[in-house]
Each structure stands twice: as structure tokens, then as C-alpha cells.
Simulated scan of single mutants.
Amino acid sequence: MSSSRVVPPIGAETPQSGPAAAVGLARVMPREWTFLRSPASDGLTNMAIDAALLELAGDTACAVWRCYAWTAPTISFGRNERTQGRFSSDQLRDAGFRAVRRPTGGRALLHSREVTYSVAMPLDERLSWRVAYAAVNDVLLRAVQSLGVPAQLVADHEAPAIAPDGPVCFDRPAAGEITVHGRKLVGSAVWRQGGAYLQHGSILLADDQARLADAAEVALPPSPPAASLEACAPTQATWSIVVDALAASLATVATPHRAVTIEPFAPPRDFPARVASHRAALGSDDWLWRR
């Protein structure tokens, strides 16, 4: 992972939906996609799989849209987020949470009742990562809107850039993220590694983010409630319904002129070894408490 480079803060350009996003989509979307529905796993395994998929996208130009869940409530910290003096292993344990640090940026969030998605795909190094970000968010937006949710993308002028040490993830939306009546429904984080791009994030089935305060060593600023499918579209607030909507949205957007079913992801023979390697790196205390 030493070849990775930091992605600039989101906010310098306005992500688009509709025709403009479709143009961007054609520039970054690979010809072939696969879809992976993962069983619930511990946080470290989930992050290692995403990191392995990013590596695979760079090595083989494969593109995988993955959906997954968590076996226990887990707080994930952003790659460059400061945790020292804010969180501790003792406080996390006492609150009943596990913790991981993501290979992507962003800020702390609690993974509990949600659908987590990840997108790992090749990205031409001549293209801005923002084009990929807008394309993925267009798929996400179409999916949640298909569930009857009045969701929209946050425009650039509505969301100034947020520092890694800023408020927790669902406290404030960044440009391009998905909100309902001003409240964040989908939080996303990104990382670019050479010719590959990773974006992953949470679609809230229910809002548990206030529980982050239980794991903090210092008082966190009060956060406004996040949006959730339980509040916006309660009959649609199940993991399987949301994942089906994401798969349908990806198929529609990635293959607009032909009816194509996105094939399931078939991992290569070396994929378990890739996951194990990333699990060892992401599982160290030097990584988790690096800042």
C-alpha cells in the first residue's frame, strides 16, 4: 500500500447527476462489472477485502461492486483521522464496540444497522478521481431514489471541504454525498492507488451515530440526526431490498443500451492470500492508532 497517494479534499468540484454524470460514467466505468454480496464479517476482514479488491483492480483491471454487513457494532476511523486523545481501546471496549482504521479517508462512523457498499475499479491515471466519485454517487442516488426516498446530491457550494480531524462522518455532508432534507443518508470515503480507485461507505438503515459519543474519551460536539431508510422509507429498510436496488441501478447505469445482468464476482485463486496480507497490515495497533 506504499504506492498510495492522498486524495485531495472533496469539495473543489461539483459532482453531477443526470446527463453530466452519464458522460463521466462513460469515461470511467469499465466495460465489465461484477457484483459481490458478502456475508457479515468482522471489521478487519471487511477492510482487508476492500483493500484486496483495490489491489486487484490495479493489477487486473477488474471492477467489483460489493455490499456487506458487520458481525458486531464497529467504529471505523478514516485513514488520516486523529484518534489520539479522542478515542481509546479501553473506552471502545467499555462501550461494546470494535474498531478499525479504513484504507480510505474520511472521519469516524459507527457501522451497525446499515448497508455498506464498496466499489473497486480501474481508473486511468490521466482522469480526475472526482469523475469516478460522481459516477459512483450517481448509481447510489438512483438506487435510493428507486426506493421512494426523496434523496439528492449535495452541491459543492453547499458543503465546504472538511478536514480529516473535523466532525464525525454523519455530522456534516461533503460535496457529492447523498442527503434527505439536508441530513446525510449515505456517507462515503475514497482512496486512489495508482491506476485503481476505491470508494466505500454506509447507507443507513437506522441512525445509530449518536452512540459514537459513548466511545469517545472527550465530549464530542452534539450532532444533528442523520437520515435513515427507517425514517424515510420504512418498508424498504432491509439489507436485501437495498442491495437489490443497488444491483439494479448498477446494471441500468453501466449498461444503458442493453439489458445485461451484472455477473457475480468470482475471486481469483490468490484472492484469500491478498486478503490475508491486508488483514495483517490493517490489524496492527501501529495502523489503528497511527495518529
Rank of each mutant, 00 (worst) to 15 (best):
residue 39 P to R: 12
residue 39 P to I: 11
residue 39 P to G: 09
residue 40 A to M: 14
residue 42 D to Y: 04
residue 43 G to I: 00
residue 43 G to F: 01
residue 44 L to C: 10
residue 45 T to K: 05
residue 48 A to F: 08
residue 49 I to M: 07
residue 51 A to N: 01
residue 51 A to W: 04
residue 54 L to I: 01
residue 55 E to L: 10
residue 57 A to W: 10
residue 60 T to M: 14
residue 60 T to N: 13
residue 61 A to G: 14
residue 61 A to L: 14
residue 62 C to H: 14
residue 62 C to W: 14
residue 64 V to Y: 10
residue 64 V to C: 09
residue 64 V to K: 02
residue 65 W to Y: 15
residue 65 W to T: 09
residue 65 W to N: 09
residue 66 R to Y: 09
residue 66 R to K: 09
residue 68 Y to M: 06
residue 69 A to D: 13
residue 69 A to I: 11
residue 69 A to C: 11
residue 72 A to R: 13
residue 72 A to Q: 13
residue 72 A to S: 11
residue 73 P to M: 06
residue 74 T to R: 01
residue 74 T to S: 05
residue 75 I to T: 07
residue 77 F to H: 06
residue 77 F to N: 04
residue 77 F to Q: 03
residue 78 G to Y: 00
residue 79 R to C: 08
residue 81 E to C: 10
residue 81 E to F: 08
residue 82 R to V: 13
residue 82 R to P: 13
residue 83 T to Q: 14
residue 84 Q to R: 15
residue 84 Q to G: 14
residue 84 Q to D: 15
residue 85 G to W: 01
residue 86 R to G: 11
residue 88 S to Q: 10
residue 89 S to R: 15
residue 89 S to I: 15
residue 90 D to C: 14
residue 92 L to K: 05
residue 93 R to G: 13
residue 93 R to Y: 13
residue 95 A to Q: 10
residue 95 A to M: 11
residue 97 F to P: 04
residue 98 R to Y: 13
residue 98 R to V: 13
residue 99 A to G: 12
residue 99 A to K: 10
residue 101 R to T: 07
residue 102 R to P: 01
residue 102 R to G: 03
residue 103 P to L: 03
residue 103 P to H: 02
residue 104 T to K: 04
residue 105 G to H: 06
residue 106 G to H: 03
residue 106 G to C: 06
residue 108 A to C: 12
residue 109 L to S: 11
residue 109 L to Y: 14
residue 109 L to D: 08
residue 109 L to E: 09
residue 110 L to E: 08
residue 111 H to D: 06
residue 111 H to N: 06
residue 112 S to I: 10
residue 114 E to D: 06
residue 115 V to P: 00
residue 116 T to L: 01
residue 117 Y to C: 00
residue 118 S to C: 00
residue 119 V to A: 02
residue 119 V to F: 07
residue 120 A to I: 03
residue 122 P to H: 07
residue 123 L to E: 02
residue 123 L to F: 09
residue 125 E to N: 05
residue 125 E to L: 10
residue 125 E to H: 07
residue 127 L to K: 05
residue 128 S to P: 03
residue 129 W to K: 03
residue 129 W to Y: 12
residue 131 V to G: 04
residue 132 A to Q: 02
residue 132 A to C: 05
residue 133 Y to R: 02
residue 134 A to T: 12
residue 135 A to Y: 07
residue 135 A to S: 13
residue 135 A to Q: 07
residue 136 V to H: 01
residue 136 V to K: 02
residue 137 N to S: 14
residue 137 N to T: 11
residue 139 V to D: 07
residue 139 V to Y: 07
residue 140 L to K: 02
residue 141 L to T: 05
residue 142 R to H: 15
residue 142 R to I: 13
residue 143 A to G: 09
residue 147 L to T: 08
residue 148 G to T: 10
residue 152 Q to E: 15
residue 153 L to C: 08
residue 153 L to N: 05
residue 154 V to E: 02
residue 155 A to R: 15
residue 155 A to Q: 15
residue 155 A to N: 13
